[in-house]
Design a binder for these strands. Sequence first.
DNA 1: TTTT
DNA 2: TTTT
Lengths: 164, 164, 164, 164
Amino acid sequence: MAGSVNKVILVGNLGRDPEVRRLNSGESVVNLRIATSESWRDKATGERRERTEWHSVVIFNEQLAKVAEQYLKKGAKVYIEGQLQTRKWQDQAGAEKYTTEVVLQRFRGELQMLDGRGGGGGAEIEDSGDFGQRSPLPARGAARPAASGGGGKYSSDLDDEIPF
Amino acid sequence: MAGSVNKVILVGNLGRDPEVRRLNSGESVVNLRIATSESWRDKATGERRERTEWHSVVIFNEQLAKVAEQYLKKGAKVYIEGQLQTRKWQDQAGAEKYTTEVVLQRFRGELQMLDGRGGGGGAEIEDSGDFGQRSPLPARGAARPAASGGGGKYSSDLDDEIPF
Amino acid sequence: MAGSVNKVILVGNLGRDPEVRRLNSGESVVNLRIATSESWRDKATGERRERTEWHSVVIFNEQLAKVAEQYLKKGAKVYIEGQLQTRKWQDQAGAEKYTTEVVLQRFRGELQMLDGRGGGGGAEIEDSGDFGQRSPLPARGAARPAASGGGGKYSSDLDDEIPF
Amino acid sequence: MAGSVNKVILVGNLGRDPEVRRLNSGESVVNLRIATSESWRDKATGERRERTEWHSVVIFNEQLAKVAEQYLKKGAKVYIEGQLQTRKWQDQAGAEKYTTEVVLQRFRGELQMLDGRGGGGGAEIEDSGDFGQRSPLPARGAARPAASGGGGKYSSDLDDEIPF
DNA sequence: TTTT
DNA sequence: TTTT
């Protein structure tokens, strides 16, 4: 459709470690389970209440999948930007089911690690040349984690694999 | 959870007229079915392909529910901002089902009508006083439709009901 | 900085035709002037008031620059996604000035045309192959306009130039 | 204007402590200075480069101003949602200047504290009653910080002042 | 079920 | 300078 936008922005915490599936193509797909929550005081009872929402996130973006696989773990706080997709499937009994996921397509979406030390992930992309004073960050969908723990080695390795 | 964000932004078209449910409280809840789509050319086949995604939107925000009920109809293009919520329900056979919706809670969310003539809806809210040169728009979650077709009457009526 | 996000989302109308600058590299950069506005009823006076905000948008993204150049004109309604950048410059008298712009970097940002007939622009990108049922839209920052006025020719030409 | 959107989303760190101005009305306005940055590897030189962008944020939203005043300090990481506003002013020499700010109007905008312990701020709002299973969070523009350091006292005090 |  |  002309002129449409389908965007989800989440800031939340991983409920468990990332799940990585390796495709035949060699690419990996990462699934995250992310919790967001709101709390409020119920005026009627005066009690504090909280509602947690769980989101299924699927990362097809190769660079971001690598970052997720290498640096994220249960409890990590992340910023995620993707799009809504609902897919139909059948359970073992043959019943129709629908699942709605937040999807980061190839070359699309964003992932930022928001934890302080040993985890904060900033955008990190190679530039193909100067662009006046605007050189930074021409590319999309990439995240570079800060050195986690013992240094920047993994970070460097990752850098070398980013193809632009 | 501390520091979480759960936000969905959609620009798309209504697949059918809004569905309005009246609650016992007198409030109304509006359900929208919104399509977003992307198209691309398949490199392998050279054919143009398109994928349409359908979104279920639920409007609990009273002002926006009124706007939706009065001014939106099948085919209308809208900007929607809400949050993801998944709810569990049982079908007639007793099978567990999950549905994920984009929800505009009371006093939350945004709705903007994007159609040109007889439909464009801008934010429209009363101010409770001046605020230096920054007076505009202190309130959230409101949309005022332009007069649709026969004039601004409904728009005015609506204005009078906006309680701030 | 690790884990940062800098994002602007605008839906508004062009105050004038796009301004195109051709760089020595052959690339073009497009500047847009976009108005957003809010209206509200002043509670004290009962009068309707409106505040219009003007935004300077700079498009370095080549694909989106082409779309803007070819299909946008004064009055057009667009969805824009970019990032905030402030740059320092000197006026003729040598006085320091700062200008803040919404920038769509190379390969980044989004542009959707929201006008109905002869103008609605949907994402339009070639795919490099199938990806199961998820094939669509792996790429970012692209917009394909619908044929404006005299047909889809320019649209097709544009398609051929999109390098992925 | 009908159907317009003016939204800025930032995730970044405070460059200095919040600046609080007390208005004659008793309300306070808080100014923040927030840095976002991107880093990338320059393909030509192979060097890592980084660009930091500084944003001026102005909080008129009373609740969020209180949160900012009480809980934010230099270095804190925050999620901010506001709108772009450019205002004209004159320096001491009478020269015209323009400043663009990210503004959180009264009852509008969002602020989430993203630091781990003693700082993470989740939405925290009182509800005016039940709303089926959807009771949470009817209100907008509020943030409740987690107890910082020694307990929830300030948090509770703040709660009592939130008028809904 | 929309839209192009 | 747009739009309603």
